[in-house]
């Protein structure tokens, strides 16, 4: 297996002025292998989208390193860097309603990337766009229509076609299904799965829905307040979570089965995620962790592999 994309201590702080900073992503290291699907989960505001965007150069990074196919990516992108990397790395956005320009036709939206990043003729671009619309289960006849004429699931397909028409190697899918109905979610997931198989895609799949992430992903990475707390095989993390936060997260995920739900000794996590402006010292989860020890408030736990758990990585003083 070869690593396709790797981050090392990737950090993104947003400056709020007056010396205040949002520690959205704080020293995140993750290696994604070719043709792998890594699911990224975690509470709202934990920095998942910021991580995805910073990896793609959509945010300038504060510190750390990102490499793609062994080559270091620039810390801040200039126009020619986007031209260079856009054909290889793309993003599918969460909201199928606001992420498509309402004044562009579907054909223009889907073909835009090719127009910018290839030297195909207008006719060739249109042909390829039509082909991609078919590939995602829409009609070439839809080319001249506008986004508002489509349902949520159809719009998400347009977003998928737009991101994949350049046949990138790596795609960040930021909550590609959470705005969709159950019946439409399955369409989009199956579509991504098919395209993954036919194009050999590598995906970072950001989502709230753990059942879906477990189903879709090879590995699962759990994020809390800007840092990773657990990384491992998706099934292992889901069925045998180790980090106290992951355990809450998994327990919080409702299963569509009343019998499972009745059997579950369930208690929701208490308290609020701390503000990323005032990141507490030590373990970031300490103020909500039922197992917190004195050392947790002083020393920041690092991700360490657990031998007995098949190399699962956990950042918690309970281990090691």
């Amino acid at each position: 297996m070869t690593v396709l994309l790797e981050t090392e201590n990737l950090t993104k702080h947003f400056d709020l002025g007056h010396g205040r900073q949002v520690h959205a992503v704080d020293g995140l290291s993750l290696a994604i292998e070719e043709r792998e699907i890594v699911g990224l989960v975690g509470e709202s505001g934990s920095g998942k989208s910021t991580f995805g965007k910073t990896v793609l150069g959509l945010h300038e990074r504060t510190a750390g390193r990102v490499s793609f196919q062994g080559e270091d990516l620039p810390a801040s992108y200039r126009q020619q860097d986007f031209r260079r990397y856009a054909p290889h790395m793309q993003m599918i956005f969460q909201d199928p309603y606001s992420s498509l320009n309402p004044r562009m036709t579907v054909g223009e939206i889907v073909g835009e990337g090719l127009k910018l990043h290839s030297d195909l003729s207008g006719r060739e671009v249109r042909e390829r766009s039509a082909e991609w619309l078919q590939r995602v289960g829409l009609e070439p006849a839809h080319m001249s229509r506008y986004p508002h004429e489509f349902s949520g699931g159809q719009r998400q397909r347009i977003g998928v076609a737009r991101a994949l028409i350049l046949e990138p190697e790596f795609v960040v899918c930021d909550e590609p299904i959470s705005a969709l109905d159950v019946s439409v979610q399955a369409q989009v997931i199956n579509l991504l799965d098919d395209l993954k198989a036919s194009l050999g895609l590598t995906l970072l799949f950001i989502a709230h829905d753990l059942s879906m992430v477990r189903y879709v992903s090879d590995r699962m990475a759990v994020m809390y307040l800007g840092a990773l707390v657990e990384v491992g095989k998706a099934n292992d993390v889901f069925f045998d979570p180790q980090h106290p936060y992951t355990r809450f997260l998994v327990a919080a995920n409702p299963e569509p089965d009343p019998r499972t739900e009745r059997r579950r000794a369930f208690s929701a996590i208490q308290g609020e995620i701390p503000s990323p402006i005032n990141v507490p010292p030590g373990c970031r989860f300490a103020n909500r962790c039922p197992q917190a020890m004195p050392q947790c408030r002083e020393q920041t736990p690092q991700l360490i592999p657990l031998q007995e758990k098949g190399g699962r990585e956990v950042a918690c003083h309970l281990f090691g």
Binding site: Q187, S211, M212, E255, P256
Partner: peptide, 18 residues
């Protein structure tokens, strides 16, 4: 609706049924 959702036991080789 039920077939469209992954359950605890569903695996990638059985695709969701939209």
């Amino acid at each position: 609706l039920k077939a469209a959702m992954p359950t605890r036991n569903s695996r990638r080789d059985d695709p969701l049924q939209p």
